[in-house]
Design a protein around this nucleic acid. Structure first.
Length: 425
RNA sequence: GGAGGGAUGGCCGAGCGGCUUAAGGCGACGGUUUCGAAAACCGUUGUGUCCUUUGGGCACCGUAGGUUCAAAUCCUACUCCCUCCGCCA
């Protein structure tokens, strides 16, 4: 949520910055501003009435104790009380309308962020192949480690089903990623719930705007998490942290669930865009002074996984028109897929500044006793299914076997290669 | 799913509808004392919001309504936690 003071003080500035997202918010901001000044004048009136009520009520108590007749003054106060009720209703309604609108406004992109994605750098080397690398879904089928037909029978299209060494590879990747973040980057591992309340989805910014994207249970109205960012960020809901315990660094492996409404027909093959996928997520909660440093660190931590897996990738700085709702600045990591011959996003590393913290009321107290909103950051560390696909393509051999990257071998019971079941060698 | 019990400040814990702007204790912080410390004593001790901001007002006792001139206190609904029974990985 944006700071309403910014809209009061400099609404045209807010409109200009939001316009970088490619949407015109001038009507909405104007409306909010109008409602806000109405709210404030009504609030003033209501508080004046309450002040009168409080003093007179106290007076009545005294008079009654003295045995004085108070029926006249009570009759007067009945009128006042009625008036208070009316104006309170109006104040509450206006406030609710303001909040509704405020929740629909996306975060302000940072000054440095402009339209259009920028390639920051490329890391690792694309291997040369003296054969045609198959896309992972074809190789996966031959290797009998992915079975989309079975998945479709169970759940419909765009669900993954891994078997045998495929399932083992997925599990190995999860353990490997978690271990790196826990042991080398100082993260606390969390296993959060996959079903969360509506407030949690609002808190991290998925709701109310993107409710179409989520699976919601019929009886209890709980949402399946689209990312572990949701439970991890909400861990500090309604808390005042102490500055010296920051940054908090949380990591979690979870499955993620997305309806992908409106993206039918895109990436229909393979593990790239599924309704359910696995991800290891990183979330940092920190101070406003520290968040920029934390952002670079987070990016490096996500990159570390790609480096260790020896996958070629590039770093993108996302343009203001392409960033997520809650983000002020975002880097994407894209891995090279030699089978598809495409760069594919495997991590999105965002600084949300105090945008989410305002929604969940997460604050910290400085050594001087000042209370500020915390800053929240998140990064995929990484999207497991897409890395699975990247390995199947990047480490493919001419015989359509898949070599296991060295760092993963201990997690694969020492296996060095996944061989096609019909191979002779 | 059924039956009970509960929710008050950082924590514990009082609180017959008006003398509660929430008692008392613990903790924390500051001070007195001391060579220093402990103890003792004294003091301070939440969050938010609005305004005409050296100041003032309003709100907050799980949440939302209601009754009343007046609600932590009475009524209704809900949420969460605990105990037990049943079912269950």
């Amino acid at each position: 949520m944006l700071d309403i003071n910014e809209i009061r003080k400099n609404s045209s500035g807010v409109i200009t910055i939001l316009a970088k997202r490619g949407e015109d918010f001038s009507d909405k901001i104007g409306q909010i501003k109008k409602m806000d000044s109405l709210w404030r004048s009504d609030l003033l009136e209501m508080e004046e009435i309450r002040r009168e009520k409080n003093t007179v009520s106290e007076e009545i108590g005294k008079l009654k104790r003295e045995g004085t007749d108070t029926s006249e003054i009570i009759a007067q106060m009945q009128e006042v009380s009625l008036r208070e009720k009316e104006i309170k209703k109006k104040v509450d309604e206006t406030r609710a309308a303001i909040d509704r609108e405020m929740l629909m406004l996306p975060n302000l992109p940072e000054d440095s962020v402009t339209a259009g994605n920028k390639i920051v750098r490329e890391e690792g080397e694309k291997k040369k192949y003296d054969f045609e690398v198959l896309p992972h879904w074809e190789a996966g089928k031959i290797l009998k480690i992915i079975d989309f037909e079975k998945a479709a029978v169970l759940s419909g299209s765009q669900f993954p089903l891994l078997c045998g060494e495929g399932a083992l590879l997925e599990r190995a990747l999860i353990s490997f990623m978690l271990d790196v973040h826990i042991e080398q980057h100082g993260y606390l591992e969390i296993m959060p719930p996959y079903l969360v309340r509506e407030e949690s989805m609002i808190g991290s910014g998925q709701f109310p705007k993107f409710s179409e994207e989520s699976y919601v249970t019929v009886k209890d109205g709980l949402s399946l998490i689209p990312t572990a960012e949701v439970p991890l960020v909400n861990m500090v809901r309604e808390t005042i942290l102490s500055a010296d315990e920051l940054p908090l660094k949380y990591t979690a492996f979870t499955s993620c669930f997305r309806r992908e409404a409106g993206s039918y027909g895109q990436d229909t093959k393979g593990l790239i865009r599924n309704h359910q996928f696995n991800k290891v997520e990183l979330v940092n909660i920190t101070t406003r002074e520290d968040s920029s440093r934390a952002h670079s660190e987070l990016l490096a931590e996500s990159e570390k996984i790609l480096k260790l897996l020896q996958l070629p990738y590039r770093v993108l700085e996302l343009g203001s028109d392409d960033m997520g709702f809650a983000a002020a600045k975002t880097y994407d990591l894209e891995v090279w897929m030699p089978g598809e011959k495409k760069w594919r996003e495997v991590s999105s590393c965002s600084n949300c500044l105090d945008f989410q913290a305002r929604r969940i009321n997460a604050r910290y107290r400085t050594a001087e006793g000042e209370i500020n909103y915390a800053h929240t950051l998140n990064s995929s560390g990484l999207a497991v299914g897409r890395i699975f696909a990247a390995i199947v393509e990047n480490f493919q051999t001419g015989e359509i076997n898949v070599k296991i990257p060295e760092v993963l071998q201990p997690y694969m019971k020492g296996r060095k290669i996944i061989k096609r079941p019909d191979s002779t060698g």
